[in-house]
Design a protein around this nucleic acid. Structure first.
Length: 188
DNA sequence: AGATTGATCCAT
DNA sequence: TGGATCAATCTG
């Protein structure tokens, strides 16, 4: 089957459904050609890996979500169109890569926490961003070929029995919202 | 367990 | 405008 880039319709749905759907899909970062001269011998460089763990952040009331403080310069992307990247620096060190979901004006996004390349798993959102060379320049851009960073279906079928869910990581400040089972991950 | 690190947000 | 906070990771 031909690799299929996920379009806005995929993300413009209930966030938990999208989150489960992202497991087994592939994150792809394709670098631009350096120059026309290099075209022949330089295959376009590409980093890709299968998504194995994500977390959902859903709505204004979710106190674990940045959007719970309302629309600000930083969070306005979460209120915008789905299928765009939401990227922020956390703890002054690590970039976190999120994809915006749901309809406009309903703030929601999914954090990509882990990916797998062959047998090697990259665990943790900071490590994922480092491996994929993510920085804030992608913030607010659509996840498509033009941006050079997207998610695609490579035909991997995921058995629902291989999906587990758990509490989100690092959100103990979020009151009762910390206990929502909005982290989903593959067990094999 | 403790250090690191800087953007963000809100109360002075 | 200052200071607490933070969707994490590394080292010991």
């Amino acid at each position: 089957m031909k690799n299929k880039i996920l379009k806005m319709e995929f993300f413009n749905r209930p966030t938990l459904k999208v989150a489960r759907g992202l497991l087994g899909k592939f994150l792809v970062h394709q670098f631009p050609r350096r120059s026309a001269l290099n075209l022949r011998n330089s295959a376009r460089r590409e980093i890709s890996a299968m998504i194995t763990e994500v977390e959902a952040y859903i709505g204004l009331k979710d106190r674990a979500s940045h959007a719970s403080r309302g629309k600000t310069k930083r969070t306005e992307i979460m209120f915008g169109k789905s299928g765009r990247w939401y990227i922020y620096l956390v703890y002054g060190m690590h970039y976190c890569l999120n994809i915006v979901t749901e309809k406009e004006n309903y703030p929601a996004a999914i954090l990509i926490r882990s990916v797998k390349i062959g047998d090697k798993e990259i665990k943790g959102p900071g490590r994922v961003s480092k491996y994929f060379q993510i920085n804030k320049k992608f913030n607010g851009k659509f996840a498509d070929e033009k941006t050079g960073l997207w998610i695609e279906d490579r035909g991997v079928k995921i058995n629902p029995r291989d999906i587990k869910r758990g509490k989100r990581i690092g959100v103990d400040y979020a009151g009762t919202w910390k206990d929502r089972l909005w982290r989903v991950y593959l067990t094999k």
